[in-house]
Simulated scan of single mutants.
Amino acid sequence: MKPSLKTIALLSTALLTAYTSTEDKVNDLLQRHMNAFVFVEGGSFMMGNPGLGWALGADSYPAHKVTLDSFSIQKYEVTQGDMDLFMEVTGYVSAYKNYDKDRERYPSRFVAKLPAVAAWSDAMAFCNWVGNSTKKTIGLPTEAQWEYAARSRGKMYRFATDTGEAIASVNMASRSTKVYTDPTALPLPPGSFPANPLGLYDMSGNAIEWVQDNYQPDYYAYSLEHNPKGPKSGQIHDSDSTMDQQKVARGGSFSDFWGNTTVTRMNIPQSLIGLETGFRCVKQN
């Protein structure tokens, strides 16, 4: 039995409505992300630990001069809701093999309003997609760009807060002591605390953020001065017979407090996710 003209019309309307709704959501996402970029005028600064107890890791030494061209960086961390929409409309599958299992195990971490849970490749893919969709050059920030922006153009700010200092539950989240076992021990929605002087939120102590660079513990000893992009290859992480290159993540996380300084570095295998990781995008001007 052939469907009636009325049935066909209703199905066509439903399909058009669904298409339009998805298209509208994508357009809204792209517009929000483009509006969230904050211009950062280039300049020179001393990158790394100035020797004032800002970080414990030896890999944050030595402080070294870096000169950057101007760029724009997003004021907020990308949310899980936006990551979900990207994956839905593009068919993208996470580089982390247990992504779906972790979603089932930790549903409270994959809430739409929280920072996106992503492997390094996932974060890069999202930023590149925004760039390709808007015909702009968009990706993850370099480690130098991230630190320069977190320190409000390289100022002597230990934390990326409104004052450069950290006050628990006032301008930075207090340390969560029951990470993953306590449903309240989660990162907060982006923008929950005051921005740094450049207008950037949560660059200390929410989700530790992926940056573009490969990780080598001694890289600061031989970093280029002008627009450094990190070493050619990352330190290899060998786990479960899988060789995985390590990338840099910056800014600390909700599971720490004093480790959330603007110079603290973290090395994470590029195809893994941590429930503490997140990211924001950068646009080249």
Rank of each mutant, 00 (worst) to 15 (best):
A112R: 10
H237W: 15
L16P: 00
C127N: 02
T79V: 01
A119N: 07
L114A: 02
Q284A: 11
L56E: 12
A144S: 09
F110D: 02
Q235T: 12
G91Q: 10
D213L: 11
G48Y: 02
A149S: 14
M1K: 10
K101C: 05
Q212C: 08
T137N: 13
D256Y: 15
G48H: 04
S169P: 01
P62I: 03
M47Y: 03
R175W: 12
D59T: 07
A149K: 02
P141W: 03
Y148V: 08
V89M: 03
F110N: 03
G139A: 12
D213R: 02
A18L: 12
M46D: 09
R105V: 07
G139C: 12
G230D: 01
T163R: 09
K136T: 06
N206Y: 04
S241T: 14
N196V: 06
P50F: 01
S223E: 06
S253A: 15
S241F: 15
A195T: 07
Y222L: 06
Y19I: 08
P187L: 14
A36M: 07
Y220H: 14
E147I: 11
P187K: 13
P62G: 06
K2L: 09
G154V: 01
N214D: 07
V89R: 05
S72L: 07
P190S: 04
G57L: 09
Y180L: 14
L200K: 03
C281I: 10
G154L: 01
D28P: 01
G53C: 01
P231C: 07
F86V: 04
M203I: 04
I268W: 15
S192M: 10
N260K: 05
Q246D: 08
Y19R: 08
Y61S: 09
L114Q: 03
K101P: 01
P183I: 14
F193H: 02
G252L: 10
V179H: 09
S108Y: 15
L140V: 06
S204L: 02
K65V: 13
T137M: 12
Q80D: 00
T261V: 03
M156Q: 13
S108V: 13
E88H: 13
Q246E: 13
L140I: 07
D59W: 09
E41S: 13
Y219L: 11
F126N: 01
S121G: 09
M156I: 11
D182M: 07
E104M: 13
F126C: 04
S192A: 14
L272Q: 13
P50I: 00
A168T: 04
R151S: 09
A9T: 08
Q80T: 06
G252E: 06
K2T: 10
D102Q: 12
V40I: 11
W210L: 05
